[in-house]
């Protein structure tokens, strides 16, 4: 199972085995990783599962859709490496993916 590393804004790290096919958001919610709210449940409607993807992983992800960019406009302190974790689907190639969660989601 791919290992996903979630690092919160204080630098606390949690490494979680996330099943292929789940999203990075689901991996967090199901394992009580703090820092991801996911208010809308993954329908790309709220921007509260916002994460910063570690630079070297950015180009390994599926390209960002317009609708996701639109939602990221609303996110708390979006940066160049911002993504919605509900749109990142875990697969073998993403084993080792590192995401940072923002200091807050709203």
């Amino acid at each position: 199972m791919p290992k996903i590393t979630y690092i919160d804004s204080q630098g606390n790290e949690k490494i979680i085995d996330v099943k292929n096919g789940l999203t990075v958001m689901e991996g967090a919610i199901q394992n009580n990783v703090p820092g991801i709210d996911a208010d809308c449940g993954g329908s790309m409607a709220c921007a509260t599962c916002h994460v910063y993807v570690k630079e070297e992983w950015l180009n390994k992800l599926e390209k960002i859709e317009d609708a996701e960019q639109d939602m990221l406009d609303m996110a708390f302190e979006p940066k160049k490496n911002s993504r919605l974790s509900c749109q990142i689907i875990v697969k073998e190639e993403l084993d080792g993916l590192v995401v940072n969660t923002p200091s807050k989601q709203t």
Partner: peptide, 10 residues
């Protein structure tokens, strides 16, 4: 300042 970043649920 006018800020329009949508709505959040509280």
């Amino acid at each position: 300042i006018l800020s329009f970043f949508g709505l959040v649920m509280k």
